[in-house]
Design a protein around this nucleic acid. Structure first.
Lengths: 332, 332
DNA sequence: GTGAAAGCGCTAACAG
DNA sequence: CTGTTAGCGCTTTCAC
């Protein structure tokens, strides 16, 4: 049916055309070993003439691994993660390594499945924003995968190289800023899976001499609906809160939306500060005060780490920055 | 050094453990062929006991192809494309197929490289938002790749299955709406690579009895900077324009930003309508009137198409919808 | 119903 | 410097 059903050109074809052995072709093309300029020429010519492209299949099987890199993120739709992914791609494409992307939805089980799939593919490097615990990741380590965590880490696996933002200081900066504005009832709207941030929030509060009102620390799942419900519920149950710190851009977005739906004016009735700067933050009304994070860099650095066989434990902590716009005001 | 350097469990190990031949293991595990319940049991038990995971490497080489799917998009950072990618992932993850993602940056050359890389990996299905022309895609077809185009198509390759939005009618709706509001000097801010949309714009204008002012049809490259420059330049060179149609969410975003920088109020001084609805569109000031597109669906459908060996030419056209918010007003 | 054997395309010894 | 050869892990005839 399809005329294109011709056999793919193999190394053998090239060898015959160049009148050399396959090993020589392999050597020349992969730059390994040596070859006389003359044969070299012939091989190159033959390869070009036949439009030969070595099959990764054969090579991978021989090497017992694909060069590929797995990338596991909670939600590719969240601009933070897509910027992170972009950073990863920027680095890996330069290195010519293919990237397999999987969306975990912050669901440990899905994550485990994806890990399994990566192992099955014999990918041997993975960059992940982990959702599961040490146990879910055990198979990956058992399989000898080179893994680098990004944005988050997993408890009991502090030895795994990772690239994170300085949540501690970012959250603290935000909280201090809010307190400086006179706020006392500050809520934290976070996401399951980033326990770190919630913890940092509690720490900041207590270290600043305030008590933690657990009802003001709410968590949502990875979906927009869940986030919206959490935000809306928060505002309704606790009309006394005067400021909220959203733990991510999606959270900030739904918080603003929920506030608006409930006729809460920002920053007059409630101040809002959001983790992660996004292009539209200054476009919205009011322009959002944010704690910016270098998402692209995180991805890029993570890729660098995983690429240079960074087995030795190393964790890179990137700084955050408070960008004051107009969504926070003095306590009402 | 690493204790985990043990050989990976192979089909042979399972065969020995179950005291059967490798062929039998293969049959049982892949569900192909028949096996007596007894052996079947033994094989399954052995496989489970050894925690055996068949290697995709061997299978792929044997089958001469990976099951994987390539996904080529201009910019993963653009929410339209990340939603598209999400749709693709939703469908392919259900099918258990790994996805290799590449960002082309709307650059035909990079696209060609990525195509080459996919061929080298023996991926045999790809979903792409194409940037290059028929020629860049020739190698893909020559290699027998099953390709489905999304959002855009390539000239001279109308036979390739694709899923697109109805740009024609979307643009026309927008233009009619603007004209109904009294606007006469309407600009189009598009992106190289989506010639379709610009063409539709011109068509809509002329078919509505207006002449096309080519100076009001501007195009930008895939980066935010390029887009901003284009938008800003447009406003400065042609202060007489009263409305602009942005061909994508990034374009709309920078248009709003540029307008603001130049102290142009929206919609008082200039009306703005943007292709593609995004969550923050109703959060910004003013809330943006948009032509929404089902990005997630597009990806999902494209994946369905490419998965079910949709060789037979089929093009799915998805509808757009005008969502009126507050960024368009009567001609000043 | 089941096993032996032949490769898929490539690389890495190992000889010459 | 270069060719021969032995697999990598798996599927698939082809006999039994």
């Amino acid at each position: 049916m399809k005329a294109s059903e011709q056999r793919r050109t193999t190394i053998k074809d090239v060898a015959e055309a160049a009148e050399v052995g396959v090993a020589t072709v392999s050597r020349v093309l992969s730059g390994t070993g040596s070859a006389s300029p003359a044969t070299r020429e012939r091989v190159l010519a033959a390869a070009a003439r036949l439009d030969y492209r070595p099959s990764a299949l054969g090579r991978n099987l021989r090497r017992r691994s694909t060069g590929g890199i797995g990338l596991l993120i909670p939600d590719i739709t969240d601009t933070f993660y897509s910027r992170l992914a972009d950073g990863v791609l920027a680095c890996t494409q330069a290195a010519g390594e293919p990237v397999m992307v999987g969306a975990t939805g912050d669901d440990p089980e899905r994550e485990a499945e994806l890990i399994g799939s990566l192992i099955e593919q014999s990918v041997e490097r993975v960059i992940a924003v982990p959702s599961g615990d040490g146990e879910m990741w055990a198979p990956a380590f058992r399989a000898g995968l080179g893994v680098v965590f990004a944005e988050r880490r997993v408890r009991g696996r502090e030895d795994v190289p990772s690239v994170v933002t300085d949540d501690r200081s970012g959250v603290r900066t935000a909280v201090e800023y809010l307190i400086g504005l006179g706020h006392r009832r500050i809520a934290f709207l976070g996401r399951h899976g980033q326990a770190q941030r919630a913890r940092a929030f509690r720490e900041a509060l207590t270290s600043l001499g305030m008590t933690v009102d657990e009802e003001l620390v709410v968590r949502a799942h990875a979906t927009r609906d869940s986030a919206y419900a959490a935000a809306s519920g928060l505002f309704q149950h606790r009309p006394d809160l005067t400021a909220v710190l959203a733990g991510g851009n999606m959270l900030g977005e739904v918080a603003l939306l929920a506030a608006r739906e409930l006729d809460l004016r920002v920053p007059r009735d409630v101040s809002l500060i959001m983790f992660d700067d996004v292009p539209w933050a200054e476009l919205c009304s009011p322009p959002l005060t944010v704690i910016s994070q270098p998402a692209h860099d995180m991805g890029y650095r993570a890729a660098e780490l995983v690429l240079r066989e960074g087995r030795r434990s190393r964790t890179v902590t990137l700084p955050t920055e408070l960008i004051v716009r107009a969504s926070c005001g003095p306590r009402r």
